[in-house]
Design a protein around this nucleic acid. Sequence first.
RNA 1: GGUCGCGUAGCUCAGCUGGAUAGAGCAUCUGCCUUCUAAGCAGACGGUCGAAGGUUCGAAUCCUUCCGCGAUCACCA
Length: 595
Amino acid sequence: MNIQEVLSDKVKEAIYSIFNVELPHVEFQPTRKDFEGDVTVVVFPMLRFVKGNPELIGKQIGEFLQNNVDEVSGFNVVKGFLNIVICDSYYLSFFNTIKELADYGRVSEPGHEAVMVEYSSPNTNKPLHLGHIRNNLLGYSVAEILKAAGKKVYKTQIINDRGIHICKSMLAWQRFGNGETPESSGLKGDKLVGNYYVAFDKAYKAEIAEMIAEGVEKEIAEKEAPILKEAQEMLRKWEAGDEEVVTLWKRMNGWVYKGFDETYKNLGVDFDQLYYESNTYLLGKDVVADGLEKGIFYKKGDGSVWIDLTDEGLDEKIVLRSDGTAVYMTQDIGTAIQRVKDFPDITGMVYTVGNEQDYHFKVLFLILKKLGFTWAERLHHLSYGMVDLPSGKMKSREGTVVDADDLMDDMSQTAATISEELGKLEEYTDTEKQELFRMIGLGALKYYILKVDPKKRILFNPEESVDFQGNTGPFIQYTYARIQSILRKADKIEIVWSTTVANTLELHLKEKELLKQLQLFPETIQLAAENYSPALIANYTYDLVKEFNSFYQQVSILGESDEERKILRVQLSKKVGEVIQSAFLLLGIQVPERM
RNA sequence: GGUCGCGUAGCUCAGCUGGAUAGAGCAUCUGCCUUCUAAGCAGACGGUCGAAGGUUCGAAUCCUUCCGCGAUCACCA
């Protein structure tokens, strides 16, 4: 129980005993640093129930609390703000209760409610880029946060393995590839396939230019270019199950998956269950037939099926083509239902998809609700802003992308350069160093992306490297490493971890501030889960670390002469380290023993 | 044009269901390594919170209008 919960009832009691009025709610806030106190009760909202001077009311409540509540050791009133001083013993006993908890802040009993979190979901015709990195980091982190908040989580992705885009790569490979394979070229599979996607586009543009030169209109040329026609023909063959096309398709997708797996492994993300569009694109048609019967959908003259959402302030939306084939929406309806069939404990789903699809998901969720699925009430589109470059949007076709693998390598490289300059790793072997640089580089990248509100668009400038100082991943990792250094030394001088520090110890201001910050961890996890926001975890961790560094600077930990106080400081450092590690795990960032 | 999102210091971002003098980092400038890792700490500088109205004891936060940026409004996915 945190201090606000303790005090809330007591304040109500105070109001009842002084004014004989039942107060429905008490408003708290942390006391601002410039005033004395730990928590503040805001008196203004009470004026609706209690008539009088806010300053005076505050004083009366303060006196009541000081006399009747053990945890309250003092108070002061500034305007309508009652600043309450909480006694040290409260914080010390709080610390003693959490000290040994290995997973402090997390809900330990696994919930029976499951949530499926979808993220990544790439096309299989090109490598992953910076945009996918944001998607992956967000999805993975939200999944971890939901777990920590007590949910059972299934991580999933739907791989867009079919369609015209992969046919383009296949066709270009057939034409220009001369049998090139990842083995023969030494290229990562997804890179190789991506090269042919670019090659297709080049050939396609050349054909268009040629046709225009021959007097064909641009728009017609774009539709009629022979290479495009051929790709479309390939897609038709694929859908018909043509053996040759399907074999090539399997082969090239196989290359891509191998490449993706490597990238995912480097990024540190994983999935519990994969869905492939080639298996799901026909799903949903039965549901549409069913909905048609129920009158949720209606059929137009040409046979296409629609839903009218104008009552909801949206448009009419097609759910089945006039030729009876599925559209994107049909497929998503079907996939959602399939997932609940596969995992019957699912009560909600999270879709990590860019904000360009806000409208699509609004409609999808509405349709599923209208179809009467109870779980449709608990669907969430984790919508995030695009990652743009100073030059504009990233386009794979035109090669203006920041490649995921390259970026991760660059980050490691930067970490290596900085680290070598500082030169504190003499005793490390080369492999240990490489591992560390990777950890730091990735930490910088992940933190940089996750600390900002997902809704905001990110402008990524590759020229200016991601910071390693200030509010960054490495700053937090560094603090963790420093703590571990203290603990290694403390171990040698035999500080006993299990020693319980007496509640009577008088706390240093910095110790108290640290304890207050530690107390916020559980509620921060819950808040982050409710808001699907890794940024809240990142900012919390940053505040904790700032507080610790200030503590570290101002007091001596191992050099403290009072034995009991030294024990407290070491234990406190250890706990802060654990919380940093735990919080960073939620962001998918590792922490080093030294750096 | 309709709908949705965003707009806070030179730059990158915090700011919870409205609360005290709007906070960090980067950059610029000052100090601090004979004591636990200086990727650090302490401090200075820097703001009419896009604009105007409104609600309220109180607004960066809620409402309205306007401006700017982005996304979206396909029998593409």
